[in-house]
Nucleic acid binder design. Structure first.
Length: 706
DNA sequence: ACTAATGTCCTTTTT
DNA sequence: GGACATTAGT
């Protein structure tokens, strides 16, 4: 309990232990071909475990050997984890020179470019970045300001206007794919089509608010990059001149907007992309397989290289994976093969319920650990972050260290967001989202007073003291209870701004310490579990102190948030050897000796909401494929017969085995049962075999309807 | 008029 | 458990 705060340094490149394939065997013919390719567009279609990242990095090395300066090579990926992995491995292979290789996520690179070129394109230098949650909050302000909140008089059963989160999803999809709002609604949210005009109105207002308040959301980073390239010729020329070669990993996860950026960035085609259509799992973010399929058309003269040999998994694991993905409707034709013989068939483990699943995983991993597999070489993969909750509790109880990837972030906790709102208002006084958040913290201040205060601020050049002047002519009319809070907030922020204009401004750590004098008492009053939250704030203060200035601190937090703290290992020595628990999305591109895949039931694979749409079901199938192909030697898929449903207040319900594990797939696996009361329930229904009769059709036709 | 408390429905994945 | 709507309370 009384652990010292864990220190997360400002995010730089992480130092990892040497990889097992440090130099590795020589590249195979196709890999070498790709690595040594010249200056024309190159598309590498690479299956799971076929060494695509390794090939990409060898290509970087080859370019450097050919005399391309490392600093003029740009490596791009879609996710932070992939970016870090790539840059780390690059460093390991090419040594110090690669330290200058440029790279990161599309969003991260866009941000760097905007800080540099934004001011000459009319973008104020003190903009702040909205993360997902902030953007939803802002959309919420729009939603109620336009009167879509309380539609009074509407019957309870009447369809409701889309929630703020949905509105933002629609808007984001529009930006990332370029498709009109109305079309998106028709295709994916048909129950909202009647409101197309209103949804567009919300999006327009949201865009206007961002501009007025000096705020950029994630999509704006990409969009601005594209616009600079397309519509600001002098700046575009400068940006293009920065890079000789651009290489993109996980290309199947990029969306049309990102493709647009690449087109404008590499008009001469010195571009390499690597991807695997079978691992495309980001359609929900607008990613499109078309990006890969159309690449040779977009970039005439493209050379296509296919990598089919798998170096990662044993033959049985590959056989199961191939069986799963072969049911896909649409894909690049390629089949993975391996020279690695031997190995056990993957386990399909039937357990009674989630508790039994946890017991099995813990028991098995301890067994393997004793046989010599380090914890770090084992991973537990889940469809969604919350699905590992039960396991995490047990691991904590048993003092087994683990590290969790994906799922809820440290930064998404309310108390962290509250604290950061103070800093953001200091950074960007027009930040309406943060103002609203701060004001609502104060006792006696609700929606109306907060909005009134923001109006007042807008009329007084965003001077904090203007909200302290309550009751005076032109001031704010507020409930008496709210006055002390408003005055205190105004005084604090005003004081801090004065100091900032002086010669010795506060560092980020110091700022947090000052802000907490006001915030800590509020926190203690609102939460009954204050101590762990206060500990989080301690840690945030420590992290902040490691940054040179507030601008860097806030931007880094928005784009590269540190791992969460509360869920980190509780083990005595921690860190060095820890089991990995990860969402499948965050596990992409990684591999482990031993992999557990949990909750292989329908409703999870595929997720219940995706089960009615064929395209979404396909994506869910690819997701399972990605999970299975992470394993090198041992793969265990668990399936709980009962699932615990919190929906109905804690009832148990029977669940079905995932439809993706059909009889053909199951033949490639070995069935394992745990516990004694399971066997008689083992007769899994064969849901894929053709039914003897179609009962539903018979029922439908009982009145002789056509 | 406004805030605070209560009730109801839906609950993914990442930047 | 969180977002949102509704009701109770000042």
């Amino acid at each position: 309990m009384a652990e010292p705060p864990r220190i997360v340094p400002p995010l730089r490149r992480k130092v990892l232990p040497p990889a097992p394939d440090r130099d590795g065997p020589p590249l195979n013919a196709a890999q070498a071909d790709a690595a040594s390719h010249g200056d024309t567009p190159l598309l590498i279609v690479a299956g799971a475990g076929s060494g695509k990242t390794r090939t990409l990095i060898h290509r970087v090395a080859a370019l450097i050997r050919r005399g391309v300066p490392a600093g003029r090579i740009l490596l791009l990926t879609f996710t932070r984890r992939a970016a870090q992995e790539m840059l780390t491995r690059c460093e390991r292979l090419v040594g110090a020179a690669s330290q200058q290789v440029q790279g990161g996520t599309f969003h991260g690179v866009a941000h760097r470019l905007l800080r540099r070129f934004g001011p000459s394109a009319g973008l104020p230098a003190d903009f702040t970045i909205l993360d997902q949650g902030d953007a939803v909050d802002l959309m919420g302000l729009t939603r109620s300001a336009l009167g879509y909140g309380d539609l009074k008089g509407a019957p309870r059963s009447a369809p409701r206007f889309p929630r703020a989160e949905t509105l933002l999803t629609v808007y984001s999809r529009h930006v990332n794919t370029g498709r009109p709002i109305a079309d998106l609604l028709t295709d994916e949210w048909p129950h909202f089509t009647a409101w197309a005009g209103d949804v567009e109105r919300c999006c327009a207002d949201y865009v206007r608010r961002k501009a007025e308040r000096n705020l950029l959301d994630y999509d704006d980073l990409l969009l601005s990059w594209a616009l600079l390239l397309e519509q600001a010729p002098p700046i575009a020329a400068q940006i293009r001149a920065l890079y000789d070669h651009v290489l993109v990993d996980e290309y199947q996860d990029t969306n049309p907007l990102q493709a647009r950026i690449l087109r404008a960035l590499c008009p001469d085609g010195r571009l390499t992309v690597v991807g695997d259509d079978a691992q495309s799992i980001y359609a929900f973010r607008g990613a499109s397989i078309r990006n890969i399929l159309d690449f040779p058309t977009t970039f005439p003269g493209t050379r296509v290289v296919t990598l089919e040999q798998n170096y990662r998994s044993t033959a049985p694991i590959l056989e199961t994976s191939n069986a799963v993905i072969s049911r896909s409707r649409e894909r690049y034709s390629k089949s993975l093969w391996t020279e690695r013989d031997g190995g056990e068939a993957p386990w399909l483990v039937t357990v009674r319920d989630e508790r039994a699943q946890t017991e099995f995983v813990v028991g098995r991993l301890l067994e393997l650990h004793e046989q010599g597999t380090p914890l770090r070489e084992m991973a537990v993969l889940v469809r969604a972050g919350y699905l590992s909750a039960d396991l995490e509790i047990e691991l904590a109880n048993r003092r087994i260290p683990y590290e969790k990837w994906g799922g809820l972030k440290f930064l998404e906790a309310a108390h962290i967001k509250d604290l950061l709102a103070f800093l953001r208002v200091l950074e960007n006084p027009r930040d309406e989202v943060s103002w609203y958040r701060l004001l609502r913290l104060l006792p006696g201040v609700g929606d109306a007073t907060a909005r009134g205060a923001i109006d007042l601020l807008a009329r007084h050049a965003w001077e904090p003291m203007s909200i302290g002047a309550v009751g005076e002519p032109g001031g704010l009319r507020v409930p008496a209870k709210a006055r002390p809070g408003l005055a205190a907030l105004a005084a604090l922020l005003d004081g801090m701004r004065r100091v900032e204009r002086g010669d010795r401004p506060h560092g980020p750590g110091e700022s947090i310490r000052l802000v907490r004098q006001l915030y800590d008492p509020l926190l203690k009053a609102t939460y009954d579990d204050a101590p762990p939250r206060l500990a989080d704030l301690d840690q945030l203060e420590t992290i902040a102190a490691g940054y040179p200035d507030r601008t860097t601190f806030l931007a880094t937090l928005a784009l590269e948030p540190p791992a969460n703290t509360q869920d980190l290992a509780v083990g005595a020595t921690g860190e060095d050897d820890a089991l990995i628990i990860s969402t499948i999305h965050s596990a992409k591109g990684k591999e482990w000796d031993v992999v557990f895949v949990l909750h292989a039931s329908d409703g999870v694979f595929p997720m219940a909401r995706a089960a009615n749409d064929e395209a979404q079901v396909d994506e869910e199938r690819r997701l399972l494929y990605v999970a299975l192909t992470r394993a090198r030697h041992e793969l265990m898929v668990t399936y709980p017969l009962h699932s615990y449903s919190t929906r109905t207040g804690g009832d148990f319900a029977y669940s079905q085995l995932s439809r993706f594990l059909d009889p053909g797939v199951r033949r490639t696996m070995q069935r394992v049962t745990v516990g004694d009361d399971v066997p008689e329930l083992l007769a899994l229904p064969d849901t894929t075999a053709a039914p003897v009769v179609d009962l539903r059709a018979l029922l439908r036709g009982q009145f002789g309807a056509p």
